[in-house]
Design a protein around this nucleic acid. Structure first.
Length: 449
DNA sequence: TCTGGGGTCCTAGGACCC
DNA sequence: TCTGGGGTCCTAGGACCC
Protein backbone atom coordinates (compact mmCIF):
# COMPACT_ATOMS: atom_id res chain seq x y z
CA UNK A 1 0.00 0.00 0.00
CA UNK A 2 3.02 2.25 -0.06
CA UNK A 3 2.11 4.70 -2.81
CA UNK A 4 3.79 7.88 -1.78
CA UNK A 5 4.38 8.83 -5.41
CA UNK A 6 0.74 8.51 -6.34
CA UNK A 7 -0.10 10.51 -3.32
CA UNK A 8 1.93 13.45 -4.57
CA UNK A 9 0.33 13.28 -8.00
CA UNK A 10 -3.15 13.39 -6.59
CA UNK A 11 -2.67 16.67 -4.81
CA UNK A 12 -5.39 19.01 -5.93
CA UNK A 13 -4.25 22.37 -7.22
CA UNK A 14 -6.54 24.42 -5.06
CA UNK A 15 -6.86 22.60 -1.82
CA UNK A 16 -9.59 24.34 0.19
CA UNK A 17 -7.45 25.18 3.14
CA UNK A 18 -3.89 26.13 3.74
CA UNK A 19 -1.33 23.87 5.28
CA UNK A 20 0.58 20.71 4.57
CA UNK A 21 -1.20 17.88 2.94
CA UNK A 22 -0.45 14.80 5.02
CA UNK A 23 -3.37 12.82 6.33
CA UNK A 24 -3.72 11.59 9.88
CA UNK A 25 -6.11 9.17 11.47
CA UNK A 26 -7.48 8.75 14.93
CA UNK A 27 -8.42 5.23 15.90
CA UNK A 28 -10.75 5.12 18.88
CA UNK A 29 -12.12 1.97 20.51
CA UNK A 30 -15.90 1.89 20.77
CA UNK A 31 -17.05 1.95 24.42
CA UNK A 32 -13.65 0.52 25.23
CA UNK A 33 -14.07 -0.72 28.80
CA UNK A 34 -17.47 -2.22 27.98
CA UNK A 35 -16.04 -3.91 24.90
CA UNK A 36 -13.32 -5.49 27.04
CA UNK A 37 -15.93 -6.95 29.37
CA UNK A 38 -18.03 -8.22 26.48
CA UNK A 39 -15.08 -10.01 25.00
CA UNK A 40 -15.28 -12.60 27.76
CA UNK A 41 -19.05 -12.47 28.13
CA UNK A 42 -20.25 -12.80 24.53
CA UNK A 43 -23.82 -13.25 25.70
CA UNK A 44 -23.72 -9.51 26.45
CA UNK A 45 -23.32 -8.56 22.78
CA UNK A 46 -26.14 -6.21 21.81
CA UNK A 47 -27.11 -5.91 25.46
CA UNK A 48 -26.64 -2.76 27.55
CA UNK A 49 -23.40 -2.72 29.56
CA UNK A 50 -21.79 -0.12 31.82
CA UNK A 51 -18.44 0.08 33.62
CA UNK A 52 -17.98 2.04 36.85
CA UNK A 53 -15.11 4.20 38.08
CA UNK A 54 -13.04 3.33 41.12
CA UNK A 55 -15.10 3.00 44.23
CA UNK A 56 -18.06 2.22 41.98
CA UNK A 57 -18.64 5.96 41.99
CA UNK A 58 -19.75 6.95 38.52
CA UNK A 59 -20.26 5.54 35.06
CA UNK A 60 -17.18 5.84 32.88
CA UNK A 61 -18.10 3.64 29.95
CA UNK A 62 -21.43 2.66 28.46
CA UNK A 63 -22.54 0.89 25.32
CA UNK A 64 -24.93 2.37 22.75
CA UNK A 65 -27.69 0.20 24.20
CA UNK A 66 -27.16 1.67 27.67
CA UNK A 67 -27.07 5.16 26.19
CA UNK A 68 -30.40 4.54 24.51
CA UNK A 69 -31.92 3.59 27.86
CA UNK A 70 -30.92 7.03 29.12
CA UNK A 71 -27.90 6.08 31.25
CA UNK A 72 -25.81 9.26 31.58
CA UNK A 73 -22.10 9.20 30.83
CA UNK A 74 -20.00 10.23 33.83
CA UNK A 75 -23.13 10.35 35.94
CA UNK A 76 -23.14 8.97 39.48
CA UNK A 77 -23.90 5.28 39.74
CA UNK A 78 -26.44 5.62 42.53
CA UNK A 79 -28.55 7.94 40.41
CA UNK A 80 -28.58 5.60 37.43
CA UNK A 81 -29.15 2.54 39.58
CA UNK A 82 -32.97 2.44 39.29
CA UNK A 83 -32.68 2.54 35.52
CA UNK A 84 -29.90 -0.03 35.52
CA UNK A 85 -31.87 -2.44 37.67
CA UNK A 86 -35.09 -1.92 35.78
CA UNK A 87 -33.52 -2.92 32.47
CA UNK A 88 -31.01 -5.40 33.86
CA UNK A 89 -27.98 -3.51 32.54
CA UNK A 90 -24.82 -5.57 33.01
CA UNK A 91 -22.61 -3.59 35.41
CA UNK A 92 -18.89 -3.95 36.11
CA UNK A 93 -16.38 -2.32 38.43
CA UNK A 94 -13.33 -1.18 36.51
CA UNK A 95 -10.73 -3.88 35.87
CA UNK A 96 -7.65 -1.96 34.80
CA UNK A 97 -5.44 -5.02 34.49
CA UNK A 98 -7.75 -6.38 31.83
CA UNK A 99 -8.20 -3.08 29.98
CA UNK A 100 -4.49 -2.31 30.06
CA UNK A 101 -3.63 -5.66 28.50
CA UNK A 102 -6.25 -5.40 25.76
CA UNK A 103 -5.18 -1.82 25.08
CA UNK A 104 -1.65 -3.05 24.51
CA UNK A 105 -2.91 -5.64 22.02
CA UNK A 106 -4.84 -3.01 20.05
CA UNK A 107 -1.84 -0.66 19.93
CA UNK A 108 0.50 -3.49 18.97
CA UNK A 109 -1.79 -4.37 16.08
CA UNK A 110 -1.61 -0.78 14.85
CA UNK A 111 2.17 -0.78 15.19
CA UNK A 112 2.41 -3.95 13.13
CA UNK A 113 0.10 -2.55 10.46
CA UNK A 114 1.65 0.90 10.09
CA UNK A 115 5.10 0.73 11.63
CA UNK A 116 6.00 1.88 15.10
CA UNK A 117 7.05 5.33 13.94
CA UNK A 118 3.58 6.07 12.56
CA UNK A 119 1.62 5.35 15.73
CA UNK A 120 1.18 7.80 18.57
CA UNK A 121 -0.67 6.27 21.49
CA UNK A 122 -2.85 9.05 22.83
CA UNK A 123 -4.75 7.31 25.60
CA UNK A 124 -5.70 3.85 26.74
CA UNK A 125 -8.21 3.53 23.90
CA UNK A 126 -7.02 5.98 21.23
CA UNK A 127 -4.09 6.36 18.87
CA UNK A 128 -3.20 8.85 16.17
CA UNK A 129 -1.75 7.42 12.97
CA UNK A 130 0.42 9.08 10.37
CA UNK A 131 -0.98 8.15 6.94
CA UNK A 132 1.50 10.14 4.82
CA UNK A 133 2.47 7.06 2.89
CA UNK A 134 -0.93 6.39 1.41
CA UNK A 135 -2.55 7.79 -1.72
CA UNK A 136 -5.54 9.97 -1.05
CA UNK A 137 -7.83 7.78 -3.11
CA UNK A 138 -6.96 4.77 -0.96
CA UNK A 139 -7.70 6.33 2.42
CA UNK A 140 -11.21 4.94 2.77
CA UNK A 141 -9.94 1.44 2.10
CA UNK A 142 -6.99 1.94 4.44
CA UNK A 143 -9.35 2.98 7.24
CA UNK A 144 -11.59 -0.02 6.67
CA UNK A 145 -8.63 -2.39 6.66
CA UNK A 146 -7.37 -0.98 9.95
CA UNK A 147 -10.78 -1.35 11.56
CA UNK A 148 -11.26 -4.91 10.31
CA UNK A 149 -7.78 -6.07 11.27
CA UNK A 150 -7.96 -4.71 14.81
CA UNK A 151 -11.30 -6.39 15.31
CA UNK A 152 -10.11 -9.68 13.87
CA UNK A 153 -6.90 -9.78 15.92
CA UNK A 154 -8.15 -8.44 19.24
CA UNK A 155 -11.94 -8.67 19.21
CA UNK A 156 -12.19 -4.94 19.92
CA UNK A 157 -14.31 -2.76 17.65
CA UNK A 158 -12.84 0.62 16.70
CA UNK A 159 -13.86 3.72 14.75
CA UNK A 160 -11.48 5.50 12.40
CA UNK A 161 -11.54 9.21 11.50
CA UNK A 162 -9.22 10.51 8.78
CA UNK A 163 -8.38 14.13 7.90
CA UNK A 164 -5.41 16.46 7.51
CA UNK A 165 -5.24 17.60 11.14
CA UNK A 166 -5.77 15.96 14.48
CA UNK A 167 -8.76 18.12 15.35
CA UNK A 168 -10.45 17.38 12.02
CA UNK A 169 -9.80 13.66 12.33
CA UNK A 170 -11.45 13.80 15.74
CA UNK A 171 -14.47 15.41 14.08
CA UNK A 172 -14.46 12.62 11.49
CA UNK A 173 -14.24 10.00 14.22
CA UNK A 174 -17.19 11.49 16.05
CA UNK A 175 -19.31 11.26 12.94
CA UNK A 176 -18.25 7.66 12.38
CA UNK A 177 -19.31 6.75 15.90
CA UNK A 178 -22.62 8.55 15.65
CA UNK A 179 -23.57 6.67 12.55
CA UNK A 180 -21.86 3.31 12.78
CA UNK A 181 -23.94 1.44 10.21
CA UNK A 182 -23.88 3.95 7.36
CA UNK A 183 -20.22 4.83 7.81
CA UNK A 184 -18.96 1.34 8.74
CA UNK A 185 -17.20 3.20 11.54
CA UNK A 186 -14.86 4.94 9.10
CA UNK A 187 -15.10 8.56 7.95
CA UNK A 188 -12.57 10.29 5.68
CA UNK A 189 -12.74 14.06 5.31
CA UNK A 190 -10.89 14.69 2.06
CA UNK A 191 -12.84 17.38 0.22
CA UNK A 192 -13.84 20.93 1.02
CA UNK A 193 -17.51 19.97 0.84
CA UNK A 194 -17.22 17.00 3.19
CA UNK A 195 -15.31 19.08 5.70
CA UNK A 196 -17.82 21.92 5.63
CA UNK A 197 -20.72 19.52 6.06
CA UNK A 198 -18.99 17.69 8.88
CA UNK A 199 -18.25 20.93 10.73
CA UNK A 200 -21.83 22.10 10.36
CA UNK A 201 -23.03 18.83 11.87
CA UNK A 202 -20.75 19.18 14.89
CA UNK A 203 -22.02 21.16 17.89
CA UNK A 204 -19.27 23.35 19.28
CA UNK A 205 -19.17 21.47 22.58
CA UNK A 206 -18.17 18.28 20.78
CA UNK A 207 -15.04 19.78 19.30
CA UNK A 208 -11.84 18.36 20.75
CA UNK A 209 -10.39 21.13 22.92
CA UNK A 210 -13.68 22.87 23.68
CA UNK A 211 -14.79 21.81 27.13
CA UNK A 212 -17.98 22.64 28.93
CA UNK A 213 -16.75 26.05 30.12
CA UNK A 214 -15.83 27.34 26.68
CA UNK A 215 -18.89 25.78 25.04
CA UNK A 216 -21.17 27.58 27.45
CA UNK A 217 -19.29 30.84 27.04
CA UNK A 218 -19.42 30.72 23.24
CA UNK A 219 -23.11 29.94 23.20
CA UNK A 220 -23.88 32.65 25.73
CA UNK A 221 -21.92 35.13 23.64
CA UNK A 222 -24.28 34.16 20.86
CA UNK A 223 -21.17 33.78 18.77
CA UNK A 224 -20.55 30.14 17.95
CA UNK A 225 -22.86 27.14 17.94
CA UNK A 226 -21.16 24.68 15.60
CA UNK A 227 -17.59 23.88 14.66
CA UNK A 228 -18.34 25.56 11.34
CA UNK A 229 -19.24 28.85 13.05
CA UNK A 230 -15.87 28.84 14.75
CA UNK A 231 -13.99 28.58 11.46
CA UNK A 232 -15.52 31.95 10.53
CA UNK A 233 -13.75 33.68 13.41
CA UNK A 234 -10.39 35.42 13.14
CA UNK A 235 -7.15 34.40 14.79
CA UNK A 236 -7.32 37.44 17.08
CA UNK A 237 -10.81 36.49 18.16
CA UNK A 238 -9.77 32.93 18.98
CA UNK A 239 -6.74 34.17 20.87
CA UNK A 240 -8.84 36.52 22.92
CA UNK A 241 -11.76 34.22 23.69
CA UNK A 242 -10.35 30.72 23.78
CA UNK A 243 -7.40 30.87 26.12
CA UNK A 244 -4.62 32.41 24.01
CA UNK A 245 -2.35 30.24 21.92
CA UNK A 246 -4.38 27.13 22.68
CA UNK A 247 -7.45 28.61 21.00
CA UNK A 248 -5.36 29.82 18.11
CA UNK A 249 -4.02 26.34 17.45
CA UNK A 250 -7.51 24.90 17.64
CA UNK A 251 -8.82 27.37 15.07
CA UNK A 252 -5.95 26.64 12.70
CA UNK A 253 -6.52 22.91 12.97
CA UNK A 254 -10.23 23.29 12.26
CA UNK A 255 -9.32 25.23 9.13
CA UNK A 256 -7.06 22.41 8.03
CA UNK A 257 -3.72 23.83 9.05
CA UNK A 258 -1.82 21.32 11.20
CA UNK A 259 -0.76 22.86 14.49
CA UNK A 260 -0.65 19.80 16.70
CA UNK A 261 2.23 17.66 15.53
CA UNK A 262 2.51 13.93 15.95
CA UNK A 263 4.39 13.26 19.18
CA UNK A 264 7.36 11.02 19.66
CA UNK A 265 6.56 7.77 21.34
CA UNK A 266 7.76 7.10 24.87
CA UNK A 267 7.30 10.46 26.48
CA UNK A 268 8.63 10.55 29.98
CA UNK A 269 6.01 11.86 32.37
CA UNK A 270 6.75 15.12 34.13
CA UNK A 271 4.48 14.37 37.01
CA UNK A 272 3.26 11.12 38.49
CA UNK A 273 0.23 11.00 40.72
CA UNK A 274 -1.59 8.34 42.67
CA UNK A 275 -4.74 9.56 44.35
CA UNK A 276 -7.83 7.77 45.57
CA UNK A 277 -11.12 8.32 47.27
CA UNK A 278 -11.36 6.14 50.36
CA UNK A 279 -13.83 3.27 50.26
CA UNK A 280 -15.29 4.57 53.52
CA UNK A 281 -14.58 7.65 55.58
CA UNK A 282 -11.32 7.73 57.47
CA UNK A 283 -10.68 9.46 60.77
CA UNK A 284 -7.38 8.31 62.20
CA UNK A 285 -3.90 9.53 61.41
CA UNK A 286 -2.72 5.92 61.24
CA UNK A 287 -5.13 4.97 58.49
CA UNK A 288 -4.28 8.01 56.41
CA UNK A 289 -0.60 7.24 56.74
CA UNK A 290 -1.21 3.69 55.56
CA UNK A 291 -3.13 4.90 52.55
CA UNK A 292 -0.50 7.50 51.67
CA UNK A 293 2.29 4.94 52.04
CA UNK A 294 0.42 2.66 49.67
CA UNK A 295 -0.03 5.46 47.13
CA UNK A 296 3.65 6.33 47.41
CA UNK A 297 4.47 2.71 46.63
CA UNK A 298 2.28 2.77 43.51
CA UNK A 299 3.67 6.12 42.36
CA UNK A 300 7.25 4.97 42.91
CA UNK A 301 6.58 1.87 40.80
CA UNK A 302 5.39 4.09 37.96
CA UNK A 303 8.48 6.22 38.44
CA UNK A 304 10.82 3.23 38.20
CA UNK A 305 8.97 1.86 35.19
CA UNK A 306 9.89 4.99 33.23
CA UNK A 307 13.40 4.93 34.71
CA UNK A 308 13.06 8.24 36.48
CA UNK A 309 13.61 9.66 39.92
CA UNK A 310 11.65 12.42 41.61
CA UNK A 311 12.92 15.31 43.69
CA UNK A 312 9.61 16.76 44.85
CA UNK A 313 6.93 14.87 46.69
CA UNK A 314 3.61 16.44 47.55
CA UNK A 315 0.80 14.96 49.57
CA UNK A 316 -2.78 16.13 49.81
CA UNK A 317 -5.75 15.04 51.91
CA UNK A 318 -9.35 16.04 51.40
CA UNK A 319 -11.71 16.39 54.34
CA UNK A 320 -15.37 15.64 54.01
CA UNK A 321 -17.63 18.62 53.43
CA UNK A 322 -19.56 19.35 56.59
CA UNK A 323 -22.72 21.05 55.40
CA UNK A 324 -24.60 18.67 53.19
CA UNK A 325 -25.08 20.33 49.84
CA UNK A 326 -27.36 18.75 47.27
CA UNK A 327 -24.58 18.27 44.76
CA UNK A 328 -21.21 16.67 45.05
CA UNK A 329 -18.69 18.90 46.66
CA UNK A 330 -15.59 18.12 48.65
CA UNK A 331 -13.98 20.20 51.33
CA UNK A 332 -10.91 22.28 50.60
CA UNK A 333 -7.88 20.20 49.71
CA UNK A 334 -5.02 20.49 52.17
CA UNK A 335 -1.65 19.95 50.59
CA UNK A 336 2.02 20.38 51.21
CA UNK A 337 5.25 19.33 49.59
CA UNK A 338 8.89 18.59 50.30
CA UNK A 339 11.89 19.02 48.07
CA UNK A 340 14.21 16.08 48.56
CA UNK A 341 17.96 16.61 48.91
CA UNK A 342 18.55 14.03 46.18
CA UNK A 343 16.11 12.74 43.60
CA UNK A 344 15.13 9.15 44.24
CA UNK A 345 12.87 6.36 43.05
CA UNK A 346 13.19 4.19 46.16
CA UNK A 347 9.87 3.64 47.88
CA UNK A 348 11.31 3.74 51.37
CA UNK A 349 13.07 7.03 50.73
CA UNK A 350 9.80 8.52 49.52
CA UNK A 351 7.55 7.10 52.25
CA UNK A 352 9.44 8.89 55.02
CA UNK A 353 8.97 12.46 53.82
CA UNK A 354 5.40 11.62 52.79
CA UNK A 355 4.59 10.49 56.33
CA UNK A 356 6.00 13.73 57.73
CA UNK A 357 3.76 15.69 55.38
CA UNK A 358 0.73 13.74 56.56
CA UNK A 359 1.61 14.61 60.18
CA UNK A 360 1.65 18.23 59.18
CA UNK A 361 -1.65 18.17 57.34
CA UNK A 362 -3.74 15.95 59.56
CA UNK A 363 -6.22 17.54 61.95
CA UNK A 364 -7.70 15.41 64.65
CA UNK A 365 -11.47 15.27 64.70
CA UNK A 366 -11.96 15.70 60.99
CA UNK A 367 -13.27 13.04 58.67
CA UNK A 368 -11.36 12.44 55.44
CA UNK A 369 -12.55 11.05 52.13
CA UNK A 370 -9.56 11.20 49.84
CA UNK A 371 -5.79 11.40 49.75
CA UNK A 372 -3.15 11.59 47.09
CA UNK A 373 0.55 11.68 46.34
CA UNK A 374 2.16 13.60 43.49
CA UNK A 375 5.77 13.12 42.46
CA UNK A 376 7.40 15.82 40.37
CA UNK A 377 10.79 17.37 39.70
CA UNK A 378 11.37 14.26 37.62
CA UNK A 379 14.81 13.44 36.23
CA UNK A 380 16.28 10.39 34.51
CA UNK A 381 17.58 8.11 37.25
CA UNK A 382 20.84 7.55 35.41
CA UNK A 383 21.93 11.14 35.89
CA UNK A 384 20.85 12.04 39.38
CA UNK A 385 22.57 15.18 40.60
CA UNK A 386 24.62 14.34 43.67
CA UNK A 387 24.25 16.58 46.68
CA UNK A 388 27.49 18.16 47.87
CA UNK A 389 26.42 18.17 51.48
CA UNK A 390 25.34 14.57 51.75
CA UNK A 391 27.37 11.40 51.75
CA UNK A 392 27.62 9.73 48.37
CA UNK A 393 24.73 7.32 47.88
CA UNK A 394 25.48 3.92 46.55
CA UNK A 395 22.02 3.62 45.07
CA UNK A 396 21.80 0.29 46.83
CA UNK A 397 18.04 0.53 47.08
CA UNK A 398 17.68 0.21 43.34
CA UNK A 399 18.33 -3.53 43.25
CA UNK A 400 16.00 -4.10 46.16
CA UNK A 401 13.28 -2.11 44.42
CA UNK A 402 13.73 -4.01 41.16
CA UNK A 403 13.35 -7.24 43.03
CA UNK A 404 10.19 -6.11 44.80
CA UNK A 405 8.73 -4.91 41.50
CA UNK A 406 9.45 -8.24 39.88
CA UNK A 407 7.90 -10.24 42.67
CA UNK A 408 4.81 -8.07 42.84
CA UNK A 409 4.36 -8.16 39.10
CA UNK A 410 4.78 -11.89 38.66
CA UNK A 411 3.06 -13.13 41.80
CA UNK A 412 0.31 -10.79 42.82
CA UNK A 413 -0.07 -7.16 43.68
CA UNK A 414 1.57 -6.12 46.92
CA UNK A 415 2.72 -9.54 48.04
CA UNK A 416 5.81 -7.62 49.13
CA UNK A 417 5.16 -4.22 50.63
CA UNK A 418 6.33 -1.83 53.31
CA UNK A 419 4.85 -2.26 56.76
CA UNK A 420 3.67 1.35 56.88
CA UNK A 421 1.21 0.48 54.11
CA UNK A 422 -0.83 -1.40 56.67
CA UNK A 423 -2.50 -4.77 56.64
CA UNK A 424 -6.12 -4.13 57.53
CA UNK A 425 -6.75 -1.46 54.93
CA UNK A 426 -10.20 -0.33 55.91
CA UNK A 427 -9.77 2.66 53.59
CA UNK A 428 -9.44 0.50 50.49
CA UNK A 429 -11.76 1.33 47.67
CA UNK A 430 -14.86 -0.64 46.90
CA UNK A 431 -14.86 -2.73 43.77
CA UNK A 432 -17.71 -5.07 44.22
CA UNK A 433 -18.47 -5.94 40.64
CA UNK A 434 -15.01 -6.52 39.15
CA UNK A 435 -14.65 -9.20 36.51
CA UNK A 436 -11.73 -11.67 36.57
CA UNK A 437 -8.38 -10.48 35.21
CA UNK A 438 -8.73 -13.04 32.41
CA UNK A 439 -5.53 -12.22 30.59
CA UNK A 440 -3.03 -11.17 33.26
CA UNK A 441 -3.46 -13.54 36.24
CA UNK A 442 -2.89 -17.26 36.06
CA UNK A 443 -5.55 -18.03 38.61
CA UNK A 444 -8.15 -15.95 36.84
CA UNK A 445 -7.62 -17.21 33.29
CA UNK A 446 -10.63 -17.52 31.05
CA UNK A 447 -11.79 -21.14 30.97
CA UNK A 448 -12.81 -22.86 27.77
CA UNK A 449 -14.80 -25.97 28.41
C1' DT B 1 6.32 66.29 43.08
C1' DC B 2 8.44 63.34 40.00
C1' DT B 3 10.12 56.70 40.86
C1' DG B 4 12.35 52.49 34.26
C1' DG B 5 12.50 48.72 31.47
C1' DG B 6 13.42 44.27 30.40
C1' DG B 7 14.37 39.87 31.59
C1' DT B 8 14.03 35.19 34.17
C1' DC B 9 12.15 31.96 37.22
C1' DC B 10 8.69 30.15 40.03
C1' DT B 11 3.99 29.00 41.64
C1' DA B 12 -0.93 28.73 41.70
C1' DG B 13 -4.67 27.96 39.31
C1' DG B 14 -7.55 27.31 35.28
C1' DA B 15 -8.68 25.07 31.27
C1' DC B 16 -8.63 20.86 28.72
C1' DC B 17 -8.28 15.59 27.63
C1' DC B 18 -9.76 10.48 28.28
C1' DT C 1 -25.88 7.06 51.94
C1' DC C 2 -23.46 6.77 47.55
C1' DT C 3 -20.28 11.69 42.22
C1' DG C 4 -12.93 8.69 39.59
C1' DG C 5 -8.15 9.08 38.53
C1' DG C 6 -4.19 10.61 36.00
C1' DG C 7 -2.38 13.52 33.07
C1' DT C 8 -0.99 18.05 29.91
C1' DC C 9 -0.35 22.84 28.73
C1' DC C 10 -0.89 27.67 29.42
C1' DT C 11 -1.37 32.20 31.83
C1' DA C 12 -1.04 35.60 35.31
C1' DG C 13 1.35 37.52 38.74
C1' DG C 14 5.00 37.98 42.14
C1' DA C 15 9.92 37.92 43.34
C1' DC C 16 14.10 39.00 41.94
C1' DC C 17 17.93 40.69 39.01
C1' DC C 18 20.63 44.29 36.52
Amino acid sequence: MNTKKNFENTQAQNYPFTGRRGFKAIVDCNSFYCSCERLFRPELDNKPVVVLSNNDGCIISRTDEAKKLGVEMAGPYFKAKPLIEKYGVATFSSNYNLYGDLSWRVMETLRILLGKENVEVYSVDEAFLNLDEFAEKDLQQVALTIRETVEMWTGIKVSVGVATTKVLSKVANHLAKKNKVATQCCVVLDTKEKIAKALQDTPIGEVWGIGSQYAQKLIEMNAVFTAYDLTKKTAEWAHKNLGGVVGLRLLKELKGEPSNQMKEELVVKKMIATTRMFGSSVKTLGEIKEAVATYVSRAAEKLRRQKSAASIISVFIVPKEQNNATYFKHGPTVSSYTTLPIATSATNELIKPAALLVDKLYEQGRIYKKAGVILSGIVPDATIQANLFLPHTKNCNRKLMDMIDNINFSQRDDIVKFATSGTARNWKMRQELRSPRYTTRWNELFLVK
